[in-house]
Amino acid sequence: MGVILMKGNEAIGESAIIAGCRHYFGYPITPQNELPAYMAARLPKVGGTFLQAESEVAAINMVYGAAAAGARVMTSSSSPGVSLKMEGISYLAGAELPAVVVNMMRGGPGLGNIAGAQGDYFQAVKGGGHGDYHSIVLAPSTVQELADLTGKAFDLADEYRMVVILLGDGFTGQMSEPITLPKPSGRSFDKSSWSLSGAKGRDPHIIASMRLNPDNALEMLNLKLQAKYRQIEKSETLWESVSVDDAEYLLVGFGLSARICKSAVSVLRKAGVKAGLFRPITLWPFPAGQLAAVSAGKKKVLVVEMNAGQMVQDVRLSVGGAPVDFLGTLGGATPQVDAIVERITGHAG
């Protein structure tokens, strides 16, 4: 098919279908409406199911049911809607069910606005719902990466039987860029040992997160989850680094703010300032070790986010010696290249 110009939200939809997703449940909210619209048009043509749920809460629980039934399933929303889904995400974590949840973040708190923002880092990365759990959080920064990470998200969800959050923002979802649609990964996951399909010729399967029985059953479940999370921290971190080797100044950002940082690196380099960029692609697991190594010996680390300072906390925990500074924009405002340059050089670029 070659290179096509595609909108971010639609690229997620087509990539999900390529990855074998045939079930989508969602509820309308801007700025991600192109994704459900895309699924509504496409899924019936590939034998799939699109269902507009009565609420975000119902949608995530339909996802839970479809995941329990062994299907590759997805829902999408934007910040206020994802808050509503948090109950279901905790249940998915407790029942160890695989699902992909897309959050194209907008400005908050409350109803906020519909501009792109990054204020849900804490919610996605630190839990959001109740109980000790993690979701794998992927933070794409281009439409191509939205497409590529969608397939990756389904594979990770199935491999670890957990929720994978694709954490984008309104701008990235609305943006069109040339992309090459991904190919299916070819990986397959046998879910027949646990999924629900009717207990034909086998003992019944039960999908549940409640553990009331004795012998510390809930503690055992939690220990198992934590062991899984430690394994993921070891093997699934993703990141990108740009011009870091000789850099004296290191910018750190994710998603859209990382792209803006990339432009700032270019401007700084032109001005003879040795700057580089470290971009976590997995926000959980956070590439702490890699950032520690990359940031060693730098004069300054500047974290740029479209929020009041969320990922910067993980950066501070990761960086050894270098001083960590923060530049944030609020309420759907986007960081300006000039402001980043000025923060590094002390004067406008």
Binding site: H23, L51, V57, M62, Y64, A95, G198, P204, I207, A208
Partner: peptide
Amino acid sequence: AYNYLRVDGCEAAHGRAPAVATGLKRVH
């Protein structure tokens, strides 16, 4: 209830059983 009926069983969050049932039925 899933401990008493010998069929495949699925727990649902409070009030969400019809949504969970919808997801299950649409897949199977």
